[in-house]
């Protein structure tokens, strides 16, 4: 702090408080809506304070859902989301750390080509190759399966680069000492490299879990059976009513449930989250 200007400090606080309110507003409104009954929206004004139906609404959605919308209970969709998010996060970490290990600690013909193949995935987000990727997944019979939901999303140049960076900063003497100590490549990987990359893996896991949980387009494409709907992709089906008004209180309860797990991860693992975010952008 260079100088003490109470006026400026007060202004900064004001800006921040305003920012916090604006950022929180939609979630507050959603939460409030999710605690009211269906009739509370008929009058046209939306309530600003929580109502008495919190437990009732959430229990109904988690347990039975809205069968008229063709979606399974929210609890089931959350389970699907969890499976997808965990598979994507763990799968990405596993295949990325292996390939980073291969690229950093070995010299072999076509190593450069392999590196570029991985690099190119950075330039091919699923959004730009939607139709052909869908055709491949359909051809492999992976529609409506957990494998189809997760495997196409677990190749990642970002994670590979992150581990490559981590490995490159490890002192050369470590692998030399390990070789003299009689450790072969896989033993070195398991005994030295993996334990030393633990925090990087945890940080990456936080980012990838959020990434996986929040997938929308992909699950929308590859799931036609409601058994495999994920909550983020399913929420729109709840809100889409052909005739009449959506059941706002139930849609909003679902929205709150959909953001709860990833938001909790960010808040409770803020340090790892920030580390992961910064590292993946290097």
């Amino acid at each position: 702090m260079i100088e003490n200007r109470p006026g400026l400090n007060a202004l900064a606080h004001l800006v921040l408080i305003l920012g916090v309110v604006v950022v929180a507003l939609p979630v507050w409104v959603a939460f409030v809506a999710s605690t009211h009954g269906p009739t509370d929206f008929m009058s046209g004004t939306v309530p600003m304070w929580p109502g008495p139906h919190l437990v009732e609404n959430y229990a109904k959605m988690l347990d039975t859902g809205l069968s008229t919308s063709g979606t399974p209970p929210v609890g089931w969709m959350m389970f699907n989301s969890l499976v997808m998010a965990l598979s994507i996060a763990l799968g990405k970490i596993a295949i990325s750390i292996l390939s980073a290990f291969a690229i950093v600690y070995f010299r072999f013909p076509l190593r450069g080509l392999a590196f570029w193949c991985i690099f190119v995935t950075l330039m091919l987000p699923v959004e730009v190759r939607i139709v052909p990727t869908f055709q491949v997944v359909a051809g492999l019979g992976l529609l409506n399966s957990y494998a189809g939901l997760s495997i196409p999303l677990i190749a990642s140049a970002t994670a590979t680069f992150l581990f490559r960076q981590v490995f490159l900063t490890m002192p050369d003497e470590l692998v030399e000492a390990a070789r003299i100590d009689g450790a072969g490549p896989m033993k070195f990987f398991r005994d030295i490299l993996l334990p030393l990359s633990r925090t990087n893996m945890a940080a990456l896991f936080v980012i990838l879990f959020i990434y996986g949980w929040n997938q929308y387009l992909w699950p929308l494409l590859v799931t036609t059976s409601s058994d495999y709907y994920t909550i983020v992709a399913g929420i729109k089906r709840l809100a889409d009513v052909v005739d009449g008004l959506p059941q706002w209180h139930l849609v909003m309860a679902t929205a709150v449930l959909a953001m709860l797990p990833p938001v909790a991860v960010v808040i409770f693992m803020q340090k790892l989250f920030v580390k992961g975010l910064v590292e993946t952008e290097k």
Binding site: P171, E173, E176, A177, A178, I180, D191, I192, L196
Partner: peptide, 14 residues
């Protein structure tokens, strides 16, 4: 059948 002592010691930190 040799052993080596490194400048930065290269101890396994974990």
């Amino acid at each position: 059948d040799i052993a080596m002592v490194f400048q930065n010691y290269a101890l396994y930190p974990h």
